[in-house]
Amino acid sequence: MMKKYLVLLLLWSGTSNPLNAQDLPISQIMIDGESWELVAEGYQFTEGPAVNDAGEVFFTDVPASKIYKVDLQGKVTLFSDQANKTAGLMFGADGKLYGTSIGGKAIVQFAADGTPTSMAEDVNCNDLVVLADGHIFFTDHVDGKVWNVSPDRKLKEVASGITFPNGIIVWPDQKQLVVSDMKGEHLWNFCISADGSLNHQQPYSAMQLPIGSMESGADGMTVDKVGRLFVCTSLGVQVFDTQGRLSGILSKPQRAFLSNVVFGGPDLNYLYATTQDKVYRRKLNTTGVRFTK
């Protein structure tokens, strides 16, 4: 009897207020007393934070063509000195590290010893996302395009017409792609087809712009388990809810260019941020997503 009423109650609470669409203010994910803490410093231009299965975070120092690893104790070691100006990094479901080599104009896969192998060549690339099914999407800010590298390593253009496509990520379901426009206002959404083509391009979210500017300064992005997007911009980390609405802005860790973010640590509850010479992290009351299946 009681069970029956509780079920009814749950049904009621879930359906009575369809207008009260779920708001996701950043106060839900911020933790009292937790703020940005320094992880590493002394680099030229940090980018591409990526997390492996263990929760260790890798990042690149783009001009130095080096990739570093931050282990779970916070110790930083060199992973590769053959990065050839790799800017974007992400681990695939195969446990391998993938990157966008601006110097080599190539999408590369790094072996465990840090040696790169080309997956696609002669491309202008910036940042990338690697899906569990093996599809890779990367941004090409030179031509204003998005490209796909299929699991059998075929390259095709899948979107165009974005002023400066920079950051790229997928929703937790890996069926929806989001691209940030650094020199515009919007986050662009696409539906991903099984063959890696993109449909229904839409400026789904409008970012907050700095006063007097028409450019968001948007760069790298990540996503949490409920689908919030975390977008690096001139104004800070702009957080968007699943309906594309701005939920709030986390302050930048330092007064410098903020290039990218990823959730790291064994529980994926630390947001790591690369910003010019430094890497920071802060604990949040949410967790990132592993695109492993």
């Binding site: 379901d173 069926k175 959404n189 539906c191 087809s193 099984a194 449909n199 229904h200 699943t242």
Partner: peptide
């Protein structure tokens, strides 16, 4: 609503985009 192109995908709800913009 923009349905996902693949099974199991989350549809893109367009209400806020259409109404709040």
């Amino acid at each position: 609503v923009i349905p996902a192109e693949q099974p199991g995908g989350t549809p893109r709800r367009n209400r806020s985009f259409e109404y709040d913009s």
